[in-house]
Write a protein that binds this DNA or RNA. Structure first.
Lengths: 190, 190
DNA sequence: CTATTAAACTAACAATTGTTAGTTTTAATT
DNA sequence: AATTAAAACTAACAATTGTTAGTTTAATAG
């Protein structure tokens, strides 16, 4: 079932507004005004405010899940796997930072099935990343430092890239990947 | 002017709720219920919902500003300065993670003077951290990698520590500091 | 005991919320 | 030109929002 152009437009506009003020602070009238129509007209295209949130978040969450599964079950080296995870975050951040911001800040406003579905995906994602780090420590490719700190310090940094990637100019996809991998792998110190 | 115990309590309860659902999604009735009183009773202690937000955010923002200024104008080595910044984030995260979450997610719901005051502090804070990194690159203590990536990758990771520090057990203040500094300074790679 | 103050209460307000019903306009197809 | 379908509109709804006014209870001080 193809999603109509107008619906896609609504989702994009909503994501942008949600990024700025958060899901709860954005009203249907806000979204409508940003599209130069009345709030009631939105309901010709979408079922509810909730549906917009779901469509924004779940699609991206599923993409993360899919690619992460591929990376984990590949036979790349640990460092290459981590580089692929970084690449994944960069790609999605550059393509759809609004939706990513929404996923990060508003996932708790999902309800029922969708909420537990999302939480499950997020837990699996973290568990997969933990597995990569763990393997790396065991096979000697990574330092024997605190595993959880490695996992979360890096993940939280990747997850909030949407907050700053556009602030510094001249940061194309390749430069970003090189700089970040260098930082995580070799650190700041000279 | 001393803040009454009851007012402090309201602020603490509100911060916890704001952390869970965000400022906009939490109602005065939610806060009241969490304190086993009625919403109207809150107004014996606070002036408005906005005031609660301001009190939560500004105090912490000022503390960050204050300590960061001390660090920048000290004559410590670059690495020691960075370690102090990490220490600062750890201290505040452990002491008041609710307020920190609120600062991170709900600062945009500040208004007028307070909003610009906050933004100014945040910009100064980033500029100060940037200065530390810059110095370090110039005096050879840090690698000559992309400065902005260093600044924001580390800052964003420190800022979201409240999301995970409690998840992994046995992470006391000292272990946390050692693990994080090791990760940022020397990286993952063995 | 009395007076005073702090802090709770009930009841209600005006504004805003997501959403629906019914209608008109616009665009596309026959 | 007539018909149909898509997408906008107006008007309104019930619920919820932050907040106020006025009142009662609980605690404290003289």
């Amino acid at each position: 079932m193809k999603i109509s152009d107008r619906k896609t437009e609504i989702i994009a506009v909503a994501a942008r507004l949600f990024k700025e003020k958060g899901y709860s602070a954005v009203t249907m009238r806000d979204i409508a005004q940003a599209m130069d129509i009345k709030a009631a007209s939105l309901y010709n295209h979408i079922q509810s405010k909730q549906e917009i949130l779901v469509l924004i978040i779940i699609e991206i969450a599923e993409e993360f899940t899919l690619v992460m599964n591929e990376i984990v079950s590949s036979n790349l080296s640990t460092l290459k796997k981590i580089e692929r995870v970084i690449q994944l975050h960069i790609t999605i951040t550059l393509r759809n930072s609004d939706a990513l911001a929404c996923l990060n800040n508003d996932w708790m406003h999902l309800t029922d099935d969708q909420l537990s579905y999302f939480i499950k995906m997020r837990e699996d994602y973290e568990q997969n990343f933990r597995k990569i780090i763990q393997e790396g420590i065991q096979n000697g490719q990574l330092k024997k430092s605190n595993q959880e700190v490695m996992v979360y310090a890096i993940l939280s940094s990747l997850r909030t890239m949407y907050l700053w990637h556009s602030k510094s100019k001249g940061l194309d996809e390749k430069t970003l990947l090189k700089s970040i991998t260098s930082l995580y792998f070799k650190g700041l110190e000279n």
